[in-house]
Simulated scan of single mutants.
Amino acid sequence: MSKPLKSFQECCLYFTTNTLSRYIGKLADDAFKATGLAPSYAHLMLLIIDEPGLSQNELSKRINVKASTMTRFIDKLMLMQFVERTQEGRNTFIIATQKGKELKPDLDKALGELYDAYCDVLGKEFAVKLTTDMHLANTKLNNLE
Rank of each mutant, 00 (worst) to 15 (best):
D116R: 05
A137W: 09
K129N: 07
E84Y: 14
K140H: 07
M1T: 10
F32D: 00
Q9K: 07
T132D: 15
Q56R: 12
F15T: 13
V128R: 13
I94P: 00
K61C: 11
E88V: 08
G89V: 03
L20C: 07
T86Y: 09
D133R: 06
L54M: 13
K26D: 05
G53D: 02
A67M: 11
K33D: 12
K6D: 14
M80P: 04
E113W: 00
A42T: 01
G89L: 01
L20Y: 05
R62V: 02
T139M: 14
D29E: 08
L77N: 01
K66L: 15
S7T: 08
H43A: 11
L54A: 06
M45E: 01
L47Y: 11
M1W: 11
L77W: 01
K101G: 13
P52S: 01
E58K: 09
K61I: 09
K33I: 13
S2R: 07
M80D: 10
L54D: 02
A38Q: 04
K26R: 08
E102A: 11
P52W: 02
K3H: 05
S40D: 15
T16C: 06
A137Y: 12
Y118N: 05
T19F: 10
V65L: 05
F32S: 04
R22V: 12
Y14G: 05
E145L: 12
L141S: 13
